[in-house]
Amino acid sequence: MFAPFIILICNHLDQRQFNRLRSKLIGLHAQTITDFCHIFSIDDTTRQHLIRMARYNGKRLGLLA
């Protein structure tokens, strides 16, 4: 679904820039999940599960192409 967009961005950036951008975005997403869990007092085990689920869904949807 998103793979063509990700590949297009990858083609315009060199591999090092792309990996840097990708890692920043993944980190921001994980921090957003952590902030959400702190706001709603969700335990760390569930937070880790949510982050793993986000990674799995990202692979499935083509976000980690």
Rank of each mutant, 00 (worst) to 15 (best):
H12N: 12
F18D: 00
R55Q: 10
L25N: 09
C37N: 01
D43N: 13
R55C: 04
N19Y: 06
I9F: 08
L8N: 14
G58R: 01
A30P: 00
Q31E: 14
R52E: 13
R60H: 03
A30G: 03
I6F: 10
Q48P: 05
H29N: 06
Q15M: 14
L61R: 02
M53H: 08
Y56P: 00
T46N: 02
R60L: 15
Q48E: 14
T32C: 12
H49N: 10
D35R: 08
A30N: 10
F36G: 00
R22H: 05
L50G: 01
H38G: 09
L50A: 05
T32S: 15
R60I: 12
L8R: 12
S23L: 04
Y56K: 14
A54C: 10
H38F: 08
T32I: 12
Y56L: 12
F18T: 00
S41V: 08
H38Q: 09
L50Y: 13
D35E: 10
F5L: 11
K59M: 14
I7A: 07
R22G: 02
I51E: 05
N57M: 12
K59L: 15
Q17R: 06
Y56F: 13
M53F: 07
R20N: 14
R47C: 07
R22I: 01
Q17T: 08
R20A: 06
R47M: 08
N11C: 07
H49A: 15
N19D: 07
A54N: 13
L61V: 01
I51D: 02
A30M: 09
L8P: 03
D35Y: 09
H29C: 14
R60W: 03
I42A: 04
R16A: 04
S41D: 15
I26H: 04
R20Y: 12
H12A: 04
T32M: 14
N11E: 02
I51S: 05
G58T: 00
R47D: 06
F5G: 13
Y56A: 15
F5H: 15
D44N: 03
K24M: 15
I7Q: 08
L25H: 05
C10Y: 10
R60T: 11
I33N: 01
D43K: 03
T45R: 09
L21S: 07
Q48A: 13
R20F: 06
I9D: 02
F40H: 12
D14S: 08
T32R: 15
R20W: 07
L21Q: 10
I26T: 11
T34H: 05
I26E: 09
L8I: 11
I26N: 07
R20S: 14
T32Y: 08
H49W: 07
Y56M: 05
R47P: 01
K59N: 13
Q15R: 06
G27Q: 11
H12R: 07
L28C: 15
Q31A: 12
L21C: 06
R22T: 05
Y56G: 05
Q31V: 03
F18E: 00
S23K: 03
D14E: 10
H29P: 00
T32N: 15
N57R: 13
I33D: 04
M53P: 01
R22E: 02
L28I: 06
T45I: 11
C37Y: 01
L8Q: 15
L21V: 12
T34K: 06
A54E: 04
I26Q: 09
D44Y: 02
Q31Y: 03
T32D: 13
S41H: 12
I7M: 11
K59C: 07
L28K: 04
D44G: 00
Q31K: 09
L13W: 01
